[in-house]
Write a protein that binds this DNA or RNA. Sequence first.
DNA 1: CCCGTGATTTAT
DNA 2: TAAATCACGGGG
Length: 209
Amino acid sequence: MPTVMASCLGQRFFRRDPVTLAKALLGQRLVRVTPGPNGKRLAGLIVEVEAYLGLKDQAAHTFDGRRTPRNESMWQHGGLAYVYFTYGMHHCMNVVASVADDPVAVLIRALEPTEGLPQMRKRRKAARRDTDLCSGPAKLCQALAIDRKLDAHDLTAGRSLLIEHARKTSYPASQITRGPRVGVSYAKDWADKPLRFYLTHNPHVSKAR
DNA sequence: CCCGTGATTTAT
DNA sequence: TAAATCACGGGG
């Protein structure tokens, strides 16, 4: 029998609470198909994520009901991308979770690159080793050419930006390290909540700041 | 360690 | 309208 084509994850997968989704995303494959005649397929396995819990979470862009042109996609149904621009030069990509009007999401923090490494190296000029290519939320957006044009993109449509079902079940807790999120010290009671998840000992996880 | 860079938020 | 902030990366 021929090998089964890897399938693009559908709406059911994303319409869950962000902590469950965060853990389920570990080991799945983020795929970017770049546009144009020289378009390429770039991909990597998700190895590090953070959950953002919406209205109650002081680290979330939607804390206390904030709704602006920037974060509008977080207010939509699960399965969309939320891509934002920060620090004057960086993009970061989130996967919107749950249902419309529950503005929660999962930040993709690191990938283990698997396809299109030459193209990633071209975009990531400063990366010396393969473990520098996608080991941070803005690094992976640079490597995969993800920017605001992909904000609110439907990840379940199987075009341009999608997530493939590379792993049937979530990793056991014994293989996941759980700890505080990076760079949210301003978030008071929420700064230290253990909402960051990564594959233990995976060399592509972002370095501690 | 420090800086770039600019959209967004918060203060006045 | 001005100032501070920021889910970061790169260079020294």
